[in-house]
Design a protein around this nucleic acid. Structure first.
Lengths: 240, 240
DNA sequence: TCCATAAGTTAGTCATACCTAATTTATGGT
DNA sequence: ACCATAAATTAGGTATGACTAACTTATGGA
């Protein structure tokens, strides 16, 4: 089912950097199940909503997304393939920079953001091989395979856990260097075990037990931390 | 003498990829001593001369070149600085790809051509450090230092040598993969010793003695090979 | 049911960087 | 001194991808 029809969904046309960025953003937003909304894409990419409208038309014309006016965008198979390819580049580069060149995890995102549009498939594969084909990037995000498949592990937001719940940190957002430095200081890194001690209502602070210490963080920060639930876990959505 | 006057010669403004490519091309062409001509730049970059005229106006406005209409372009100090920075990126990347990731010397140019516009200074410095701060790239081209200085070694074209001359291969052109594969096959790589056995008039073939073998190459190819003259060397320009 | 507000789109503009076609300038040979 | 030719430039056009301002559509609360 590859390159069967010529007219639609270009199989190997070079995409521009901005197009790859849009596809990544739409992929990210679509993970919730809902189509990616114009304003959400604009916010994520830091551009004006009007600019997104224009690009959405272009992406639809290229067969990379489906789009119903006023009702958001969804990736097509071709669009998803391109998004996963870019995600793989991004995450392999992040992993390589930390493993092979001594970067700290808070400095790799910006570098990868630029290199992901310039690196060839061969370079990415060589990088991945050189560091032992890691399954995730330094922030715990899974790396799509060479052939474009990705199994997203089932995770919940730390902010959705209830007091008593135990969990393992799976993944943290990678796009804010300062946040990453703070999390590292707290010991909230992929693989760390945590337990929710208490949480205050109305988006209040969440008290956590870490390996040796106890810390309290805000709900906003906790929603950027994805965990694999352990004992007495709950996936209740009513925790607001 | 850094960032003294604000109005001219922007010290740290981000340059676009194409601008960096033009500066590299002008730097290369200016090595002959003559200003870089519009048509020569166009040929080197594979674009139309009319496009070069437009860009030359922009580069002059940016304070990166001086330009007298109909009389070619010369880099300013700021332009030369930017060109050397890009050259450093290009050559460090080429060296890193061969030393650290197993690339062959004929495959690094295209990759570097794209990465050089995306890599940060920090990345370049880390790459250089990781492979022991090499003085040249895999094709023998000198790598500008961190602070933007470059000593070009004194070299002559292999095509300028006369029969009997002995020389050491210093550097070969890096931009044609097929040529590089052929040169590797011949054993014409930086560091190799060669002696000119004979040469035919009117741009005729040049007979060479290499380590164990003898080979004959054309003048066109020989002009892409720079050598450090040894015994009985001549720098006669009349060798045409 | 209506309508205020939020979300999305259109219209019009700009900068970059390329193109082809037409024109202008420079230069060397007679 | 002239002029044919090569080199360079200008004129006008295209695509990408961003912007602001103005307008349209969708939606939920009274």
């Amino acid at each position: 089912m590859t390159a069967s029809r010529a007219p639609k969904s270009a199989p190997n046309v070079e995409l521009t950097g901005p197009v790859e960025d849009y596809l990544k953003a739409i992929y990210e937003l679509e993970r919730s199940g809902e189509p990616a909304e114009t304003n959400a894409i604009a916010r994520l990419l830091g551009i004006a909503p009007a600019s997104v409208s224009g690009m959405i038309r272009r992406l639809a014309r290229l067969g990379l997304i489906r789009h119903e006016r006023y009702h958001g965008a969804r990736l097509t198979a071709a669009g998803r393939r391109a998004a996963l390819k870019t995600l793989r580049r991004h995450r392999v580069i992040e992993a390589y920079l930390t493993s092979a060149l001594g970067y700290s995890w808070d400095r790799v995102h910006d570098e990868a953001e630029r290199l992901e549009h310039a690196a060839s498939d061969e370079l990415i594969d060589r990088m991945a091989e050189a560091i032992g084909e890691p399954a995730t990037d330094p922030h715990g995000a899974p790396i799509p395979s060479r052939d474009g498949t990705l199994e997203e592990r089932s995770v919940v937001k730390l902010s959705d856990l209830m007091p008593g719940d135990v969990a393992r940190v799976e993944r943290v957002s990678d796009d804010d260097a300062e946040r990453l430095r703070y999390l590292a200081e707290l010991g909230i890194v992929p693989g760390a075990s945590i337990q929710v001690i208490a949480r205050e209502p109305f988006e209040g602070p969440i008290a956590l037990r870490l390996k040796d210490t106890s810390r309290t963080i805000g709900t906003g920060l906790a929603s950027q931390i994805l965990v694999a639930p352990g004992a007495r876990a709950t996936r209740s959505r009513s925790a607001r």
